[in-house]
């Protein structure tokens, strides 16, 4: 919480963590000092399952550049998979 930068969003899907697969309910995305990544600052993503509790949290710390690359990859795969339908809904994203 050195930066106070956090964005939370509800998500739907599944994630595989220390206790196997769990349903996911929330993603918490921060820009802060990482616990483990070899970087001064990182994008920290916590995927949280209300059913699985804290112990099943799936944590990711990405360097800022790799976080941008991941966003591009996610959007590119969505674009290829959902095509025009997605572009119509979220045209500005691209």
């Amino acid at each position: 919480m050195c930066t106070g930068i956090v964005e939370n969003t509800r998500v739907s899907g599944s994630g595989k963590g220390p206790n196997g697969w769990v349903p996911l309910d929330q993603a918490s995305v921060s820009y802060d000092h990482p616990d483990h990544a070899q970087a001064e600052r990182a994008v920290i993503i916590d995927l949280i399952s209300e059913e699985g509790g804290l112990e099943s949290r799936i944590a990711v710390e990405l360097t800022p550049q790799s976080a941008k690359d991941l966003v591009r990859a996610i959007l590119a795969s969505l674009s290829r998979g959902e095509g025009d339908e997605l572009e119509e809904r979220n045209g500005s994203v691209y």
Binding site: D35, I44, D46, L54
Partner: peptide, 18 residues
């Protein structure tokens, strides 16, 4: 924010905005 592994509790605090 409860008890657990320190970094998990820290994640909970982070998501809650401190």
């Amino acid at each position: 924010f409860g008890h657990g592994v320190p970094e998990d509790i820290a994640a909970k605090v982070r998501a809650a905005g401190g």
